[in-house]
Design a protein around this nucleic acid. Sequence first.
DNA 1: CCTTGATATTGATAATCATCAATGTTGGGT
DNA 2: ACCCAACATTGATGATTATCAATATCAAGG
Lengths: 116, 116
Amino acid sequence: MTSQPILEPATDESCCARAGMPALGAEEAKQKALVFKALADPNRLRLLSLVKAEASGESCVCDLTEPLDLGQPTVSHHLKILVDAGLLHREKRGTWAYYSLVPGALEKTAGLLATL
Amino acid sequence: MTSQPILEPATDESCCARAGMPALGAEEAKQKALVFKALADPNRLRLLSLVKAEASGESCVCDLTEPLDLGQPTVSHHLKILVDAGLLHREKRGTWAYYSLVPGALEKTAGLLATL
DNA sequence: CCTTGATATTGATAATCATCAATGTTGGGT
DNA sequence: ACCCAACATTGATGATTATCAATATCAAGG
C-alpha cells in the first residue's frame, strides 16, 4: 500500500504553499523530508544518475544491477523508494520493467529547497 | 572529529565535476548523499526554515527548542548535523551559539540535483 | 571562586534502514 | 501445459539514527 507519490500529492487542501507563514509546519516538513530521504542514499543517487544518463531515457532493472554491485532485490527496493517519492516512473513492458525520470521532478525537488 | 563540511570539501583532487562521465561514481555519490541525509529529517528541515525566517538571519538554540517541541540536546545534535553538512554556520558569542544559513548553500544543494 | 544559564557531549534505547537469501509472480517461448 | 527469464515481495539481520536523561563545558556576573 505504500505507493503514493510524495512529490505531487495531487494537491493538498489549500491551493498553494503557505503565504506568509513564519516557518515550515510539522506536516509539510514530514512530506518534504520523504523526498530527501529518497535521495539520502548513495546507491539511489547513482540509480537516478544512471537512468538520467541513459540515451533512451529509460533503464530496466537488469541494466542497473551490475554497475551498482548490488543484488537484484536490493535494486528493486531502491527503485520502489524512488518511485514512491515521485522521482522515477515505472512502466512494465513484457517481462521488463522500465524506469525513467519523472519530468520536472528533480527541478521541483530543487524548488523545495528554495521555499524552505 | 566528525566536523568537516560536506558541501564544500575544499576541493577534491580534480578541479571540477567529472566531464562527460556516464554516471555518478561511488565516491561522489557518497558525498552528495551526506548532504541529502542532513535534509532527510522533518525536524532538520524545520530548523533550516526557522533560521531562514529569522529577520536577523541568525537564531540561538534556545529560540529553536520550543517551536520544535524537542529537547535541547536533540536540537543541538540536529544543528551539528546541519553544520557538518555545510548548510548552517555556527558562531559562538558569549554563552549563546548563533546559527545562520551558509550563503548559497541551499542553492548549491539544489545544483547537486541538476548535475546528477 | 561560586553560581547560573546556555550549549555540547555521552550513554542508552527504540525505531528505521540497507542488504541479502529465499520465494513468489508473471509474461513469453517451446 | 511447461519452463525460463525478469522482476517483486518476504523475512531476517546488522548497521544507522533519532531521541532523551544525565553529565560536562564554558562564559558572564556577583
